[in-house]
Simulated assay, not measured.
Amino acid sequence: MVMQPGTEISEKLTSIRDTLEETGAAGVRLRGTDWFAWATGGASNTVLLAAESGVAEVLVTPDGAWVLTDEIEAQRFRDEELTGDRGEFYQLQVAPWAESTKREAFVAEVTREGKVLSDRPVSLLPHSPEMLLPTALVQQKRTLLPSELDRYRQVGRLASEAMTEALTQAKPDWTEHQLAGVGAAALWKRGLHPALTLAAGERRLPLYRHPTASAAPIGQVAMMVFCARGFGLYANLTRFICFGSLAAEQKELHRQVREIEAAALEQCRRGTPLNQVYTSLQQAYKQQGYPQAIYEHHQGGTTGYLAREVVANPATTDCLMANMAIAWNPSLRGGKIEDTFVLHPDGSLEDLTFDPNWPSVEVEGRSRPVPLEL
């Protein structure tokens, strides 16, 4: 059962207003799909799935909080997005869709034309310049509250179930388009947005790290990758299937990928900078005999309200913190592994996308997925 977002929203509004006081700003505008979901306790402003911002935004001042939208969206937001606790914390402010200046006039009025902070600052009016949100608030978005973790567990479970359902239906004569389509349908059936459904069969799998689905048949081996979004939170996972027995060299390839991932997971402790995890991955690739592989694909990083909040590289000094979500995706040509974990205050890692119905092996005390032989 997902917790009601009332306490969560109250805490977040307090944080936003503390930011206003610390910066001397008059208001905060949150336009992105990630920040909208964060501020509203999991509501959605998304219509176009690929868009980074949506059809409504959050505005918070020291003494008010609104969802700003237009007449096209207003009734649906009243009926479906601002229900329950959300409707108690946020007023709906509606402007004509063809007269955006009326929205800006409202913002100018309630902020008294003062400084405004935003996740995606714009300067539509000369008297209302906008500035980026401070780092402290951004960091807060990346550390999850208990109610957010409850929702995240639900998203992870549903995403992994959708993956298992789709891949167990697959046939070797399916095209990659068919496989990706069945995967997307399994996500939609569970109320999740298929933000990403990559699919690759045996011909294209060794060629591309981001194999957008094609009309090629999948053949004997296939991979599917999900970035599944629910309540604004991303569950990221990768799985493989094989029709018949996996060849010995492929088994060894997947074993090596699991060992590389284990090196990264071992480094996931509170206070560890992401570039330290990156270095451990680099060393693990070398130990497995692939010193150049780390340059062939990004290795993942922190996740949450974005598919990747911060991607780890040699220069990322951002540190892991308790209740951050993490998704590493080390890969070799033809092999990859990925799940979404959360780092708990006691230092343990919880796999949010683990499906007990999927085959796994133990690696350094953790159950890790292996290719499903059909």
Rank of each mutant, 00 (worst) to 15 (best):
L59C: 09
E22F: 06
T238N: 12
A166T: 09
T302A: 01
T143N: 08
T14W: 12
L68D: 01
T61Y: 02
S214H: 09
I9F: 09
P291G: 04
A105K: 11
A50R: 14
A200N: 03
T46K: 14
G41L: 02
H193I: 11
A325C: 14
R255G: 05
T212R: 15
G201S: 01
L349N: 07
R17T: 08
I218T: 05
E249G: 06
I218Y: 03
L117R: 07
W328C: 07
T83M: 10
L144T: 03
D34I: 00
E22G: 12
G114A: 06
T40V: 03
A322E: 14
E161N: 08
W38R: 03
W35C: 02
W66S: 02
E52A: 12
S118D: 05
L374K: 13
A56D: 03
E57K: 08
G87H: 09
M321H: 11
A26N: 08
V342F: 10
V155F: 01
A199R: 07
F243L: 08
T168P: 03
G64I: 02
A293H: 00
F341Q: 04
C242F: 00
C242T: 12
Y208D: 14
E350V: 07
N329G: 10
L20I: 04
V94C: 06
H210V: 13
N313D: 14
T168W: 10
V28K: 05
Q288A: 15
G183E: 04
W35I: 00
E99N: 12
A159D: 04
R31C: 06
R333E: 10
V116Y: 04
A264M: 10
E364Y: 07
G87T: 07
H210Y: 15
M324I: 01
Q140E: 15
K286A: 13
P172E: 05
R333G: 04
R153S: 11
E338V: 02
S100A: 15
L205G: 03
T353L: 06
L198A: 11
L144A: 12
A159M: 03
G289Y: 09
L13A: 04
L13K: 05
L246K: 08
T317K: 12
K251H: 08
T279Q: 15
G156Q: 04
A185H: 05
L343P: 01
